[in-house]
Each structure stands twice: as C-alpha cells, then as structure tokens.
C-alpha cells in the first residue's frame, strides 16, 4: 500500500499563476557563460511588451555592468526560448512570439566568454 486515498486526493492551489501579477508575466533571463551574475534573473513584464524593449532596456538594466555587455553584437546573439533555438522579431510582442508566463529566455554571445575567459 502506498499513501492513503486522502493524501492522493490532495490538491494544492498554485501560488504563481499569471493572474497574481497585476497584468504582468514573469520572464526569466539568463546570459550564458557570464556567471558574475550569479543566477538568471526574473523580471515582470506586460505580455504586450515589444521584444525590442528587452534588448534596449531590460537587458542593459540587468547586465550593463559587465565589460562584455558593450561588446555584444546583437546580430550574432543566439537565443534559447524554453530550451529551444529561437529567432526573435524585435517589433512583435513577447506574447505574439510564444514568450509566456514563466518562460525562460537564454542568450548566448559567441566570442564573449566572461572575465578573462573564465565564464564569469
């Protein structure tokens, strides 16, 4: 016998569904091989935010302290959305291109390997 029927029938209420965030969705952002930022970050954004706002405002606010940031060639950035290769359209909104609540967007910047090539 495993756990009782009472335990198996238990249902919890998810704490972080989208309706709790005042119209925003949570977006997680990670910059590969730049572990000076100890973890990926979490930002709340309206789902109708154009993608260009990420590259022009959100990412600079998060990462501009890193000396590699100014050297990023945005045409060569490789994006991963929820684990899959992804080509963003800067003019379209996050929601229009499948970036949903609690999606994870990673960027890889070939040739930029962190402080002294240490992935920091």
């Amino acid at each position: 016998m495993s756990a009782s029927a009472t335990v198996l029938a238990y249902r919890g209420e998810p704490k972080d569904t989208a309706e709790h965030f005042h119209g925003n969705h949570l977006l997680y952002l990670g910059w590969d091989r730049h572990l000076m930022f100890c973890a990926p970050v979490c930002v709340p954004l309206p789902p109708d935010t154009p993608f260009s706002v990420l590259t022009e405002q959100v990412l600079p606010a998060a990462y501009a302290q890193h000396p590699d940031f100014a050297r990023i060639d945005w045409n060569r950035v490789e994006w991963l959305l929820d684990g899959q290769p992804f080509t963003p359209d800067p003019a379209r909104t996050l929601a229009e291109q499948g970036i949903g609540h609690k999606s994870l967007l990673r960027l890889r910047t070939p040739g930029l390997d962190g402080l002294g090539g240490s992935a920091s």
Partner: peptide, 12 residues
C-alpha cells in the same frame, strides 16, 4: 568606487 551589486532579482 563601483562595488558590484546585482540590480535584478534572481530566478529561484
């Protein structure tokens, strides 16, 4: 004079 602090909340 630029002690590093991470300006964005982390993913948990």
């Amino acid at each position: 004079g630029r002690r590093f602090y991470n300006p964005t909340l982390p993913m948990l």
